[in-house]
Amino acid sequence: MRVRSLAVLSIAAVAALLLAGCSAAGAPAASPSASGDLCAAAAAPGTASDAVTTSGDIGTAPTVTFTAPLAVTAVQRTVDVVGTGPAIKAGDYVQYGLTQVAADTGTVAGSVGYGNAPIEPVQVAVGSGIDQAFGCATVGSRIVVTQPGAQSNPPRVLVIDVLGITTGDSWCAPADTTVPFPSVAFDASGAPTITIPANTTPPTAVALETLTPGNGDVVQPGDNVTVNYTGVKWSDGSVFDSSWAKGDPATFPTSGVIAGFRRALEGQKVGSTELVVIPPVCGYGPAGQSGNTSPLAGETLVFVVNIISTAPNTQQ
């Protein structure tokens, strides 16, 4: 299994701007957690973040004003507009807009997440780094974050609009579909051949079908699982990865794979064989999105996965 590839969550490079500089210099990275106090994780306001003003409607790229150069020596966070929607909880996926401004010149580097420049929602977890920016902000909020320079990155001001929330339990949850499922045939060794239905538009949500029910332990969130799998592209039916072909089952934590693949594992029983269809947003992200260089970007993926074993992940 290409663990490195499947472990990469397809978050736009712009989300990395939120991560970069949000952790204390020299501090070890904490393991992200879907529980904990996001309000306490938020960076404190300071002189730099309080000096930034914004104007414009939430949901549109703001006008950002401050006296340049702005002295930015630490990550600071000021909630410029308090929204009236629900608050972010640990593990939620947040839809947001982001504007980046150079702190030394006041020059706008760009805005994404608005209008024709959508980006993928990002999961906000305690210890992820971006928890310092989002905290437990409410939908409709506008947040100003200042980041000091690091390596080749100059100091910057980020203005974030919190546009919507999807709970972790609901994100990429399997949904009913009227689209025909791919067909699967198994050879004598149990390896599958997956055939995509001809002239069919793929489903827009994760679709899951149990091909063979198991009777073993139930896979719990974050478990280490051992599986056999084959993955094909809906677009042309080509196999892009297969542990069956390699003759070597793969072992990994369910928390380390793309969201759609995780949905085919957690809650299922050992011994089951699952067919899962994964749209790009729950896989490797849209094609052409800034910073997304995965060869599987924009692809709807189809996996057949047989769950061999599961065990608690003691490293969480």
Rank of each mutant, 00 (worst) to 15 (best):
T60V: 14
T60M: 12
T67Q: 05
A68N: 04
A71N: 07
A71Y: 00
T73I: 05
V75H: 13
V75G: 10
V75D: 04
Q76P: 02
R77Y: 13
R77D: 05
D80H: 07
V81P: 08
V81K: 07
V81D: 00
V81N: 05
V82Q: 01
V82L: 10
G83P: 05
G83E: 00
T84S: 15
T84D: 14
G85S: 12
P86D: 14
A90I: 02
A90M: 04
A90F: 04
G91V: 05
Y93W: 15
Y93T: 05
Q95G: 07
Q95E: 13
Y96K: 02
G97P: 03
Q100W: 06
Q100M: 09
V101C: 01
A103Q: 14
A103G: 03
T105Y: 01
T105D: 02
T107G: 01
V108T: 14
V108H: 04
V108W: 08
A109S: 08
A109W: 10
A109V: 06
A109H: 05
G110E: 03
G110L: 07
Y114G: 02
G115H: 00
A117I: 05
I119W: 01
I119M: 15
E120D: 11
P121Q: 01
P121N: 00
V122C: 04
Q123D: 11
V124D: 11
V124R: 03
A125R: 11
A125P: 00
S128I: 04
G129C: 07
G129W: 11
G129D: 04
I130R: 02
D131V: 11
Q132R: 15
Q132E: 06
A133E: 05
F134C: 04
F134Q: 01
F134G: 00
C136H: 10
C136D: 11
T138K: 14
V139P: 01
V139D: 01
G140P: 13
G140K: 09
S141N: 07
R142T: 12
V144Q: 01
V144D: 07
Q147R: 10
P148E: 12
P148S: 09
P148Y: 06
G149T: 12
G149S: 10
G149I: 10
Q151Y: 14
S152A: 14
S152K: 12
S152Y: 09
N153Y: 12
P154N: 08
P155S: 15
V157H: 02
V159K: 10
V162Y: 05
L163F: 03
I165C: 04
T166D: 11
T166L: 02
T167K: 06
G168Y: 08
S170I: 03
S170E: 12
W171R: 15
C172Y: 13
C172W: 12
A173G: 09
A173W: 00
P174D: 02
D176N: 15
D176Y: 06
F181Y: 13
P182S: 01
P182F: 12
S183D: 07
V184M: 03
V184S: 03
A185Y: 00
A185C: 01
F186T: 06
F186C: 12
D187T: 10
S189I: 06
S189T: 15
G190P: 05
A191H: 15
A191G: 10
P192H: 07
T193K: 15
T193M: 02
I194R: 07
I194S: 10
T195S: 13
I196R: 00
P197I: 12
A198Q: 08
A198H: 03
N199H: 07
N199S: 14
